[in-house]
Design a binder for these strands. Structure first.
Length: 105
DNA sequence: AAAATGACGGTGT
DNA sequence: TACACCGCCATTT
């Protein structure tokens, strides 16, 4: 089953993000073994074959900024969804100092 | 097989 | 915060 493909690693990590927290593309890429493939990671979310089971909405940019989102409402809906899960927002960005998944222990 | 693309990241202005 | 440029990577066409 699992082909150790880079993309599968990223999807697996995305599913591991606890509710109320978010991870950055760079972080997922790093955890997957490619610390510089943040760009590629964004592509995986876009193609996102596991859409309903992969919480791609919990993945944000390094600044905590929301980007893209192919779902309805775009980043606006994504933002609302994250807030609904307990993620703290700071203006248009996520407060990574509080809601970052790998930010702390 | 080669070129183009993009839900990035960082830095500079 | 906004905008511009470069560098990096895997996927898609």
């Amino acid at each position: 089953m699992a082909e150790s493909s880079f993309r599968e690693q990223v999807y697996a990590l995305a599913r591991q993000i606890p509710k109320g927290f978010v991870a950055t593309y760079g972080q997922l890429a790093a955890l997957a073994g490619h610390p510089r493939a943040a760009r590629a990671v964004g592509f995986f979310m876009k193609t996102n074959p596991d859409a309903p089971r992969t919480p791609c909405h919990r993945v944000v940019a390094s600044d905590g900024r929301l980007t893209g989102y192919s779902g309805a409402g775009g980043v606006a809906a994504k933002r609302a969804m994250l807030q609904s899960e307990g993620v703290v927002f700071k203006g248009k960005k996520v407060d990574l100092s509080v809601s970052s998944w790998l930010k702390k222990t």
